[in-house]
């Protein structure tokens, strides 16, 4: 185990430095690329902040759905293969629920402000 401050805190500080100190000194394409870079560091920070319990929960939900154990990547691969070869019916509510949950978890890291996600959550509001 590492000493404090945590990697997440250091990353936040580095990102703030780029945004607050460096970005105002740049223009044009450099400013654009720096903004993209700061956004990328935010994405990495959100990914580091995902609690282990969420990852374990995703793995457990997939294991129940598929009736097999394995790494999360292998289970997702099995889910994709099952949908493609029609051995898994995506109209089953538990399959649908699993696809929503996995995709929302990805977006919470990738792009939590995505308008399409907000709209999906508003439309599904009643059953959540």
């Amino acid at each position: 185990m590492q000493d404090e401050p945590t990697a997440i805190e250091i990353l936040a500080s580095a990102t703030a430095f780029l945004r607050e100190e460096i970005l105002p000194k740049l223009a044009g394409n450099d400013a654009f690329q720096l903004r993209v870079t700061a956004n990328a560091l935010d994405l990495v920070r959100r990914e580091l902040m995902v609690p282990q319990s969420d990852k374990d929960g995703e793995n457990a939900a997939l294991a129940v759905l598929l009736g097999q154990e394995g790494s999360t990547e292998d289970l997702i691969r099995a889910l994709a293969a099952g949908i493609a070869d029609r051995t898994i019916d995506p109209a089953r509510p538990e399959v649908e629920a699993c696809l929503w949950a996995m995709t929302e978890a990805k977006l919470d890291v990738d792009q939590p402000g995505y308008a399409g996600l907000t709209r999906a959550r508003a439309l599904r509001g009643s059953d959540n």
Partner: peptide, 21 residues
Amino acid sequence: RSVERAMIARRASENEIDLLR
């Protein structure tokens, strides 16, 4: 190898939520 390219790759999840919708 640009950060921009990597970030475009990570936008695929946006299209997945659009597909589910």
